[in-house]
């Protein structure tokens, strides 16, 4: 079930299981992921044109995604983090819809299994 989820969201199940030991643990972290606020903070900051806050939120979200081994989402979050770090705010706004799309896929899939 968890393995299926990682396939659906293009994540790295092998890494996740080695890191979190078993499916029950992963499930616990999936709940934490839903509760994590960094995505909302990033969304708000982009809407408010606040580049600094957006960078911090993206940076945090990146760490979370990497820890969860959500490879596909991780990749776009990493891209937007680097654009924000370089203060290319317009470029970041351009990429953001892709982040939204991938994030929503992940959230929907998680809701199915918990």
């Amino acid at each position: 079930m968890i393995k299926q989820l990682y396939q659906n969201i293009e994540g790295d199940y092998e890494t996740a299981i080695s890191r979190m030991q078993n499916d029950e643990r992963i499930q616990k972290y999936l709940k934490f992921f839903l509760a994590d606020e960094s995505y909302m903070q990033l969304k708000n900051a982009i809407e408010m044109n606040d580049c600094d806050s957006a960078f911090r939120a993206a940076h945090t979200l990146k760490g979370v995604c990497q820890n969860m081994a959500f490879s596909s989402l991780s990749k776009v979050v990493e891209e937007i983090t680097e654009e924000l770090r370089a203060k290319n705010f317009e470029k970041a706004v351009e990429i953001f819809p892709e982040v939204v799309e991938k994030y929503e896929i992940v959230v929907n899939e998680i809701k199915k299994v918990i």
């Binding site: 979190m20 643990r25 934490f32 994590d36 960094s38 760490g63 820890n67 969860m68």
Partner: peptide, 12 residues
Amino acid sequence: DDVLINRELLKD
């Protein structure tokens, strides 16, 4: 760490 997931991972 402000991120719960990060804390939990280390805690585990």
